[in-house]
């Protein structure tokens, strides 16, 4: 996968903006930013980002490729759409953030221990295995992702909520062992495999093996 990153670096040596335009979902919008900063000011999680959206756009323009792709900023987006609603140029900023995150993941540049990325991976693993998400397993997985001791602490902190959910039958402890699957698990897996093939093809195009 790091080969892909290297290939991209070489292909778009002069312009990260062009790279983003070609490879990131909605990336062609980045160039339309008129640098007003309203997205950055509107983000409810703004204070927790290292680089707010407009800064990411400006860094893209300034060829600060590594800093952008290795940043965990775009992973912070919670899809509240405040930025999209207010952007005077109509940039789909939320989608661009997700697009950048996805691209960074594809290039294997996600920062270690990035919680959104970890959650995404768990979600995906659960989904792709059974055709549906096992909420309990994901929940437990998240609780314990930072080690056993932290997991216990997390579980204790959430215990009232957990008990209440069990009481009202919103959660079933037995789901942890196996749990529901969709009707045609193998069908789903076949579909996903096919999709993965397409995706891999896409990637190999840039991987120096082709074109």
């Amino acid at each position: 996968m790091s080969n892909l990153n290297q290939a991209m670096i070489e292909k778009y040596r002069s312009s990260f903006l062009n790279e983003v335009e070609a490879n990131v979902e909605e990336g062609h919008w980045v160039k339309m930013c008129m640098q007003c900063g309203v997205c950055s000011g509107s983000c409810p999680l703004g204070p927790h980002w290292e680089h707010p959206p407009q800064e990411l756009f400006m860094m893209i323009r300034a060829n600060e490729r590594e800093a952008v792709l290795k940043s965990d900023s775009m992973w912070m987006c919670t899809s509240c759409y405040n930025c999209i609603a207010r952007c005077p140029r109509g940039l789909p900023i939320t989608h661009i953030m997700h697009g950048l995150a996805t691209y960074a993941k594809r290039l294997n540049l996600v920062p270690k221990k990035q919680p959104t990325a970890e959650f995404g991976q768990m979600f995906w693993d659960s989904l792709s295995k059974n055709g549906r998400v096992n909420e309990l397993k994901i929940g437990v997985g998240l609780y314990f992702k930072d080690g056993f001791a932290q997991g216990v602490k997390n579980a204790m902190a959430g215990r009232e909520l957990g008990m209440a959910m069990m009481k009202t039958q919103r959660m079933n402890a037995m789901e942890y062992f196996g749990g529901h699957k969709c009707k045609d698990t193998s069908g789903i897996q076949k579909m996903l495999k096919k999709a993965q093939e397409f995706e891999d093809q896409q990637i190999t195009r840039f991987d120096g093996k082709e074109g």
Binding site: Q35, C36, G37, V38, S40, G41, H51, Q54, E55
Partner: peptide
């Protein structure tokens, strides 16, 4: 007034 000063990104 809430926002970000884009010259240096100061909230």
């Amino acid at each position: 007034l809430n926002g970000v000063d884009t010259e240096g990104y100061n909230r």
